[in-house]
Simulated scan of single mutants.
Amino acid sequence: MFTLIKNVELYCPNKLGVGDILMAGGKIVWVGNSFPGRDLPNMDVIDGTGKIAVPGFVDGHVHIAGGGGEGGFSSRTPEAALSDLTEAGVTSVVGVLGTDSTCRYPGELLAKARSLREEGISAWALTGSYEIPVKTLMGSVKDDLILIDLFVGVGEVAISDHRSSQPTFEELSKLAASAHVGGMIGGKSGVINVHMGDGPALLSPIRKVVETTELGLGQFLPTHVNRNPDLFEDAIEYGLSGGQVDLTTSTTPQFLEEGEVKCSQGLKRLLDSGVPAERISFSSDGQGSLPFFDSDGAFTGLSIGTSRSLLPEVRDSVLQEGIPLETAVQVITSTPASIYRLPGKGRIAEGNDGDVVLLNRDDLSVDSVFAMGRKMVQAGKAVVKGKFER
């Protein structure tokens, strides 16, 4: 079946003006002005007038199999539902484990990634969790990255956090070395997604590994770097030195009152400081717990992350911070796709996967979502749902 989107404003994510997109066989087969072909058999023609086409969103940090647990077994968060992702514009997702690597494990994560693929979107996963030594399926990080197709990196590994395993420099270095070699042989990014906590060490553990080994900053993707003002300032310097930084869009009013940097404002500050958009990504921490702790580290409450937080922060970046849409949309499309080396993702281009989001021009809300050329969302509502969704 052919799908032709006509007269739509193209942000691929670079701005191309008004044009058309033709999709067939799950791929984008033509992008340009005024589709020259005649009517094709079984072609669905969509009028994109008043709409903006952007690449399908890539959410690089989602607890797709559930997370949480810091407040006891009843605080375990649920799995991600297909429609929660697609209605948010997400067509590609990278799944992670979190604090709990006893009741949650890599096999469960891998199975959830495969189930999301069967339901219609693209999904990958990271092997390991907060702790070092990380738990794997094949016995080592290197083996997992080489032999298991959907594992593209490692994480999230926690540092500077009271919930981490307090890894030593040697442990972090050896993990990075294994991820690097496994990524090379397996044709993967091998990146280590590093959970940043509130600890005073900030990003220094990563810097020390890079300064004293042959590994580069690109081996790491520190996330939650907007957690507090000190960490964010350190992240600016890290980005200026060539590192990749990831800001978390899911938050709470309490977190913001306590000093967390709002993502849209953080993006503005990073760009104004000279960090290029190619090194900045947003991820949602979807289905992850957003726990509250008192000054003694005791659990006091819980909220939950969601992929639906991605687009509002991009929208605020444009409407409130004055960042061009073609720049702002990179942080949830081309940049995370590049960091994780996800083939065919992050750009509207001939030969890439048919992952396209149509936004309403007036308020940048989601109108339609196509994943691998298949319409998943229409008029903001899922038309394809997961097997157990009502």
Rank of each mutant, 00 (worst) to 15 (best):
T49Q: 15
T49K: 15
G50C: 09
K51E: 11
K51Y: 14
I52K: 00
I52C: 08
I52E: 13
I52S: 08
A53E: 00
A53D: 03
A53L: 05
V54K: 03
V54H: 01
P55L: 03
F57S: 00
V58R: 00
V58M: 02
D59R: 07
D59A: 04
D59M: 09
G60Q: 15
G60A: 15
H61M: 07
H61T: 01
V62D: 01
V62T: 10
V62R: 03
V62P: 03
H63I: 07
I64D: 10
I64H: 05
A65Q: 11
A65E: 08
G66T: 06
G66C: 08
G67P: 12
G67N: 09
G67K: 08
G68S: 04
G69T: 02
G69V: 07
E70A: 04
G71T: 05
G71V: 13
G72K: 01
G72R: 03
F73H: 12
S74V: 12
S74T: 14
S74I: 03
S75Y: 10
R76L: 14
R76W: 14
T77Q: 00
T77Y: 01
E79W: 05
E79K: 14
L82V: 07
L82D: 03
S83K: 11
D84N: 14
D84K: 10
D84M: 11
D84Q: 13
